[in-house]
Design a protein around this nucleic acid. Structure first.
Length: 426
RNA sequence: GCGGUUGUGGCGAAGUGGUUAACGCACCGGAUUGUGGUUCCGGCACACAUGGGUUCGAUUCCCAUCAAUCGCCCCA
């Protein structure tokens, strides 16, 4: 083997893929109830979409994008996240003109970021995300947050922590930003080099810094919540009120900053506590992006959404030893002896499958004992035995694997018999 | 981009500067001329990541590379 899987990617093999199918189906089912429709956009877009949508100064755009030139000289990028694409599609397909607003969409698909892989961080990973575009009602914020929390809790995850914050509207943010700069500027040389850079780029991030967490200026730093203007403040209050009413508990963290430029007002993250995660604690993140659609050339269309990583979800489920209900048995395994019986078995298999049963047989000339072993391994509920004797008598032996009970029935009744048996046992 | 750890058959895992590199699991066969488990017996397998160096001799020591993994930064 000299050709290997690219760094930061994975093969999802049988045995594991069922878990993926399960959680994806759960996501679709949940979205159906919340009335969000699935959207599928391409995995690559014009590079400019992300530069403008996600923001030129973000880490994602500056150092994590899979960007390439196609044969026509166009710069394309493997999508690092889903919101920009959905917003682009919203504009391009003129969804703002549809009668029903907000437009409520969800997606499940691979995203790509060029990073050093580690636990819970892959170069290709799968996000389940939701976007509601076309309404600035705080009830939509609450709905989206509730949807995300519901998803986890319905899968049985414990120890979740919802953290919310308001980044305010543009006016509030600008005022706060200036306050932060004024606060740190005089003594910025006492901070780490990262923070010194952050002062200009994104002073909010200084508050996130672990190295300088104990610095006295950190404790006295101006909070965004004190700089929210009346409108933003009322908005945030309403979101919190609705969450309270719905019984969704949360924690307000004024230091919660999201990494993408397009966020304003509501921002939230869902974290998980406990072991099995290494450094990763964020399961999901989202927020409101009222200017994004306009930035991409559409009409003013406020939106909100979140995205969560299915890899991290599966890690969390595993860490908490939560078993998903996955059917791994097959209905019937055919054991055949002798060439004629094998031929007949092939035909019977075809008929069983046409009737909706999951069925299989041996294809590598194993002896009966080996065939039974296969049946056992495949967790067959029934085994049907067909040999020269049975064939001659036009019978077939059907064995219930769990009880060991075996019954001889007419070959002509076999399919019907199996079908009825399955229906009964469901 | 930076740092730690690791790299032996399909998987797990010993071990050694020197004739055929343990063992366990899995798999296959036999004991049981056509019935899954257990047990016993036998068998299978392109295994020392790659490239250099030291040495009479390297899987073992040294260096580099590659890969995996974990962490920093940042995030999902």
């Amino acid at each position: 083997m000299n050709i290997r899987i690219p760094r930061g990617t994975q093969d999802i093999l049988p045995g594991k893929v069922e878990q993926w199918q399960y959680i994806e189906e759960k996501a679709r089912d949940l979205c159906r109830r919340y009335n969000y429709k699935e959207i599928r956009t391409p995995v690559f877009e014009q590079t400019e979409l992300f530069q403008r949508g996600v923001g030129d100064t973000t880490d994602i755009v500056q150092k994590e994008m899979y960007t390439f030139e196609d044969r026509g000289g166009r710069s394309l990028t493997l999508r690092p996240e889903g919101t920009a694409s959905v917003a682009r599609s919203y504009v391009e397909n003129k969804m703002h003109g549809e009668a029903q607003q907000p437009t409520k969409l969800f997606y499940i698909g691979p995203m790509f970021r060029y990073e050093r892989p580690q636990s819970g961080r892959m170069r290709q990973f799968v996000q389940f995300g939701v976007e509601a575009i076309g309404s600035a009602d705080p009830a939509v914020d609450a709905e989206v947050i509730a949807l995300a929390m519901d998803y986890y809790s319905e899968l049985g995850l414990k120890g979740l922590k919802l953290v919310i914050n308001s980044l305010g509207d543009k006016e509030s943010r600008d005022a706060h930003r200036q306050a932060l700069i004024d606060h740190f500027q005089p003594r910025i040389n006492e901070f780490c080099s990262d923070c010194q850079e952050r002062l200009e780029k994104n002073p909010l991030r200084i508050l996130d810094c672990k190295k300088d967490a104990d610095h006295e200026l950190m404790k006295t730093a101006p909070s965004i919540l004190d700089y929210l203007n009346e409108e933003s403040s009322a908005y945030f209050e309403k979101v919190k009120f609705l969450l309270d009413q719905m019984g969704v508990s949360y924690e307000v963290d004024p230091a919660l900053v999201r990494g993408l430029d397009y966020y304003n007002n509501t921002a939230f993250e869902i974290m998980i506590e406990g072991k099995g995660f290494g450094a990763i604690t964020t399961l999901s993140g989202g927020g409101r992006y009222n200017g994004l659609v306009e930035e991409l050339g559409g009409p003013e269309s406020p939106g909100i959404g979140f995205a969560l990583s299915l890899e991290r979800l599966l890690m969390a489920l595993e860490a908490q030893e939560i078993n998903l209900e996955i059917k791994e048995s097959i209905d019937c395994y055919l054991v055949a002896m002798g060439e004629k019986a094998k031929d007949k078995a092939a035909v019977l298999l075809y008929e069983l499958r046409k009737e909706g049963l999951t069925a299989d047989k041996d294809y590598i000339d194993r002896k009966p004992k080996g065939q039974f072993k296969s049946a056992d391994r495949l967790k067959a509920r029934y085994t049907a035995i067909l040999g020269e004797n049975e064939l001659e008598a036009e019978k077939i032996n059907v064995k219930h694997m769990e009880t060991g009970e075996q019954k001889e029935i007419a070959l002509s009744d076999f399919i019907t018999y199996m079908k009825e048996n399955m229906e009964e046992s469901i």
